[in-house]
């Protein structure tokens, strides 16, 4: 018995784009957190019981703090409650959870770090930690609200796509790669399933090592309830069927391990 749900202190809360918030919290999770891992965030509202899995966007180990960037998905949601909290409040969290991106594998290679929509935030900590030959950060947004862009620009070459074409390439991250004729030896990606499906296909067709971070509804967040499974190519050792738990065995998987 070594872990617990803790009440993390909110150090700052800021709206950084329409419906997008950035929160720094002081938490024990900061000490070991890896890019691609997530934390479970809970409301104090008893009518909303389940955790909200949110990726680690940045860590400051010395200060014992970490940053999450999240979207308020609608009215009366848990994320709306989070957005109304202020510095000094406490928020129940568990973390870090899951397995992060194996970023050491990028050393000496040309890399794509790809994020789409609310899959953009974890790419920041990944970009900060990664040592590689060519760091190509390819991020996709809906419109001109290109949150975290300045921070990406301090950490690599940045290519942007927007659905409405207001910034960068019109379309998605794959369109941005094509338009800029980019190439990579290894790919790390987080975003909506259709985007990941396209990246997985591209990587496999071109024989590129590719890590993708998957998303699914969760209940426990720690691997016990089997709510959050995805299909695995091989029979999984733990489940003894073709299912892997995204919260525990993922959320980051080698693209060839899973069927999406």
């Amino acid at each position: 018995m070594t872990r617990k749900r803790e009440d993390a202190e909110i150090l700052s809360q800021e709206r950084i784009a329409k419906d997008i918030y950035s929160m720094w919290i002081r938490t024990e999770a900061a000490e070991t957190a890896q890019p691609g891992q997530f934390i479970s965030m809970y409301t104090n509202d008893g009518s909303k019981l389940l955790p909200r899995p949110i990726s680690i966007c940045e860590t400051d180990r010395e200060a014992g703090s970490l940053r999450v960037v999240y979207r308020v998905t609608g009215k009366n949601t848990g994320t709306e409650i989070f957005s109304q909290m202020k510095a000094g409040d406490t928020i129940p969290v568990i973390g870090p959870l899951g397995n992060g991106f194996p970023y050491e594998r990028a050393e000496g290679k040309r890399v794509f770090l790809m994020g789409g929509g609310i899959g953009v935030p974890p790419v920041l900590e990944l970009a900060k930690r990664m040592k590689c030959d060519r760091k190509q950060i390819v991020v996709g947004y809906r419109d001109e609200e290109t949150f975290l862009r300045d921070e990406f620009e301090q950490n690599g070459e940045v290519y942007i796509s927007t659905e409405d074409g207001s910034v960068g390439t019109k379309g998605n991250v794959m369109d941005a790669i094509r338009e800029n004729a980019l190439e990579a030896d290894i790919i790390y990606a987080c975003g909506p399933t259709p985007m990941l499906r396209a990246i997985k296909k591209y990587a496999e067709e071109n024989g590129i090592e590719c890590y993708i971070s998957l998303e699914e509804r969760m209940a426990c967040g720690i691997g016990a309830c089997l709510a959050c499974v995805c299909q695995s190519k091989e029979k999984d050792e733990h489940s003894n069927v073709h299912n892997k738990r995204i919260c525990k065995d993922g959320p980051v998987f080698l693209s060839t391990e899973v069927e999406i």
Binding site: S47, L49, R217, C225, N243
Partner: peptide, 22 residues
């Protein structure tokens, strides 16, 4: 193997599950 996902949802003051006995 259990049911396809989504297997869980939050409801007011509770949840629903259809894990399907994986």
């Amino acid at each position: 193997s259990g049911n396809p996902t989504p297997r869980v949802a939050e409801v007011y003051g509770g949840m629903m599950n259809a894990v399907g006995l994986q």
